[in-house]
């Protein structure tokens, strides 16, 4: 059986919140019998958008990570649900609002914090993957339909095809170490969970400070060279996908015979080294 997957490209998400609002439009004020009770007007975030800014003014970037229920294929919530939560053959994990009434503890069972407690109706609730629409023949859930950038893609695919996608597009899941096997995959997740080292290279030229384009920038850890890059027209370089708290680095910058070394760069998070004068 083909299973539903959601592929989220972090680099394409611009925090427009269309997904978040489309979800509310669909579920606030509407009960979908057999699928879910209505979402309350305020408070729940079935599509929860997390923000991450990296770097320091003025070399920064900002990324957003839409985070719905992961539709795990090994879902801890099902185990905790005492028969009230189940997985459909197409992979969608469903909370039965009748059977789950009063079961507040399942909220804690989800390690992704994707389940919300509806205080008024005394039921746990979460993203349904818009199963009520897919079952009616819709091609995509509401959030995917409303996304203007293509950051969200819903695919119903065989496991084998998925593996190709994972490899060719370098897809990742959140917290693989939990063994939950999410059906929600992320592309370009480095924008959210990895670090960069950036700086601007300049030099005095004809009596004025100028940006240096085309300087070679090499990054070393211990004696090993990790990568090499080049500065752009503004003298900027950015080395990305580094791990947080990953030790001491050394940077070497070369341009037209002159060179500069920066030793002992230690960083916890993304770092803008500022202007480096050759």
């Amino acid at each position: 059986m083909k299973k539903w997957h959601l592929i989220i490209d972090v680099e394409k998400c611009e925090d427009c919140n269309n997904c978040f609002l489309a979800c509310k439009d669909e579920h606030v004020g509407n009960d979908w019998p057999g699928y879910t009770l209505a979402q309350p007007l305020h408070g729940q975030r079935w599509m929860n958008i997390e923000r991450r800014e990296r770097g320091q003014y003025p070399l920064i970037d900002a990324a957003y990570r839409p985070t719905p229920c992961m539709q795990c294929s090994n879902p801890p919530c099902v185990k905790a649900g005492k028969g009230s939560i189940s997985q459909r053959p197409d992979g969608i994990v469903q909370i039965d609002p009748v059977k789950a009434k009063g079961l507040k503890e399942v909220v804690k069972a989800c390690p992704y914090n994707a389940i919300y407690w509806n205080e008024e109706l005394q039921v746990p609730q979460k993203c349904t993957f818009c199963a009520h629409l897919l079952d009616e023949g819709w091609k995509q859930p509401r959030c995917v339909q409303a996304c203007p950038t293509g950051a969200l893609r819903a695919e119903q695919v065989e496991e084998s095809l998925l593996n190709d996608l994972i490899e060719s597009q370098q897809l990742e899941v959140l917290h693989p170490e939990w063994g939950t096997h999410p059906a929600v995959y992320y592309k370009n997740l480095y924008r959210f969970n990895k670090c960069f080292l950036a700086g601007s290279v300049a030099r005095m030229h004809n009596g004025a400070e100028d940006c240096v384009q085309g300087a070679r920038v090499k990054l070393f850890r211990d004696s090993q060279q990790l990568c090499e890059t080049e500065t752009d027209a503004f003298g900027d370089f950015k080395i990305d996908r580094l791990e947080e708290n990953s030790g001491k680095y050394r940077l070497e910058i070369e341009f037209e015979g002159s060179s500069k070394r920066i030793e002992d760069i230690e960083f916890q998070a993304s770092l803008n080294l500022g202007v480096i004068n050759l």
Partner: peptide
Amino acid sequence: TPEWQEAETGVPAKDVRALARE
């Protein structure tokens, strides 16, 4: 000059020069 504008805009002269050249 780009240096003159730096005092007003707070944007480094070198960056404005680079932008103008590009």
